[in-house]
Simulated scan of single mutants.
Amino acid sequence: MDELEFRRRIMADPKQRDEEINAAIKTSDKNSQFAEDALELEKQIAKAMAVDVPEDLADRILFNQTSSVESNVVRPNFARKAMAMAASVAFVAGLLVGQLNWGNLVVSPAQASLANTAMKHVIDEKPFVQGLDEQVKSSQINAKMAPFAHEFSHSFPYHVYYLNHCGFGSSNALHMVFQGEKGKVTLFFTGIPSEKATDFNQDGMSGIIEPMGDTSLILVGEEGEDVAKIADKLANIIKPMN
């Protein structure tokens, strides 16, 4: 596992400790320190955000606003103090992020939206597709890829259980379920562009977003599935149609 892949997986889940992660930590003091810093940052952010909100917060804000209007006097009130506290927490978190040098590992809102849409599809449609085996052929896959102006230049290297189109956020996507190395993997190929390769983990599943020009390849597999390896393999054989 290279350093970039290690950092992506640690930032996605600082507590993750599978065989590959443990091996990377043991063989590199730099990786070990990064993993410890990520855990410490998670603890500090959780502690900073654990601020009890007074039960009468709304009443106090309304009271101070009313008093301010009546007296036309500008003075600090509870709402301003709360805002200042929130800003301070955000500033401290920003400093900690800078110290860890996450660089391009920070997930943008657009990337997060793609990941959330993919995860919701997998969870919602699992009862429907988990028992299917349509034994899909490569020719059928390229036919479904046509609306996205891309195709596989070689035969699809995995057994495909399910293939169709689906609504995907504000766009559409190719929706495929195939056999990975550890379990079933769901693939989405959509006309929504993405900024950069991004890993994500949620609900016991691992995923990756791989930008491909104006389109995006998204994979979701069981936790422990090396979706980055699969994405790299597939990206090499997905080509724009002539």
Score class of each variant (00 low, 15 high):
residue 178 F to T: 11
residue 181 E to W: 00
residue 145 M to P: 09
residue 163 L to F: 08
residue 158 Y to G: 10
residue 178 F to P: 08
residue 172 N to A: 11
residue 166 C to W: 01
residue 159 H to M: 04
residue 155 S to Q: 10
residue 157 P to A: 12
residue 150 H to N: 11
residue 175 H to S: 10
residue 147 P to C: 07
residue 178 F to A: 04
residue 150 H to F: 15
residue 161 Y to A: 01
residue 174 L to H: 05
residue 154 H to R: 14
residue 150 H to R: 15
residue 151 E to D: 04
residue 175 H to T: 07
residue 171 S to M: 07
residue 143 A to C: 00
residue 146 A to I: 10
residue 163 L to G: 05
residue 181 E to F: 02
residue 177 V to K: 02
residue 142 N to G: 03
residue 160 V to H: 09
residue 176 M to N: 00
residue 161 Y to H: 00
residue 153 S to Y: 06
residue 146 A to C: 01
residue 150 H to T: 15
residue 181 E to P: 00
residue 165 H to T: 12
residue 165 H to Y: 01
residue 173 A to Y: 07
residue 180 G to Y: 10
residue 156 F to Q: 14
residue 174 L to M: 07
residue 166 C to Y: 07
residue 179 Q to T: 11
residue 144 K to L: 03
residue 175 H to N: 11
residue 170 S to V: 14
residue 181 E to R: 02
residue 166 C to L: 10
residue 160 V to Y: 05
residue 143 A to H: 05
residue 153 S to M: 13
residue 148 F to L: 02
residue 179 Q to R: 06
residue 151 E to F: 09
residue 170 S to D: 12
residue 148 F to D: 03
residue 169 G to K: 00
residue 152 F to S: 10
residue 156 F to W: 15
residue 179 Q to A: 13
residue 144 K to A: 06
residue 144 K to R: 03
residue 161 Y to N: 00
residue 151 E to N: 08
residue 157 P to V: 14
residue 174 L to G: 00
residue 174 L to I: 08
residue 175 H to I: 06
residue 152 F to K: 07
residue 178 F to I: 06
residue 169 G to P: 01
residue 149 A to G: 13
residue 179 Q to L: 11
residue 147 P to T: 07
residue 152 F to T: 14
residue 163 L to T: 01
residue 170 S to K: 10
residue 173 A to R: 07
residue 168 F to E: 06
residue 166 C to Q: 03
residue 148 F to H: 00
residue 159 H to D: 05
residue 160 V to R: 03
residue 163 L to I: 06
residue 180 G to H: 08
residue 152 F to E: 04
residue 168 F to M: 04
residue 155 S to E: 10
residue 164 N to T: 13
residue 173 A to K: 09
residue 165 H to L: 05
residue 148 F to P: 01
residue 157 P to Q: 12
residue 144 K to G: 01
residue 156 F to K: 15
residue 162 Y to G: 06
residue 154 H to T: 15
residue 180 G to F: 13
residue 145 M to W: 03
residue 158 Y to F: 15
residue 144 K to E: 01
residue 178 F to V: 11
residue 161 Y to T: 00
residue 158 Y to E: 09
residue 161 Y to C: 02
residue 156 F to A: 15
residue 159 H to Q: 10
residue 159 H to R: 14
residue 155 S to W: 07
residue 142 N to R: 04
residue 172 N to H: 10
residue 142 N to V: 02
residue 182 K to F: 09
residue 175 H to K: 07
residue 149 A to Y: 15
residue 153 S to Q: 09
residue 174 L to C: 03
residue 164 N to F: 03
residue 169 G to T: 00
residue 165 H to F: 05
residue 163 L to R: 04
residue 165 H to M: 05
residue 181 E to A: 02
residue 170 S to L: 13
residue 166 C to A: 14
residue 180 G to W: 10
residue 157 P to R: 08
residue 170 S to P: 08
residue 163 L to H: 05
residue 165 H to A: 08
residue 164 N to R: 05
residue 178 F to H: 11
residue 174 L to F: 04
residue 167 G to C: 03
residue 153 S to W: 05
residue 167 G to A: 10
residue 152 F to Q: 02
residue 159 H to G: 11
residue 167 G to F: 04
residue 143 A to T: 04
residue 160 V to M: 08
residue 158 Y to D: 11
residue 151 E to K: 11
residue 181 E to G: 02
residue 180 G to A: 09
residue 147 P to V: 10
residue 158 Y to A: 14
residue 165 H to I: 05
residue 153 S to N: 13
residue 158 Y to Q: 08
residue 181 E to V: 05
residue 171 S to E: 12
residue 150 H to S: 15
residue 172 N to T: 11
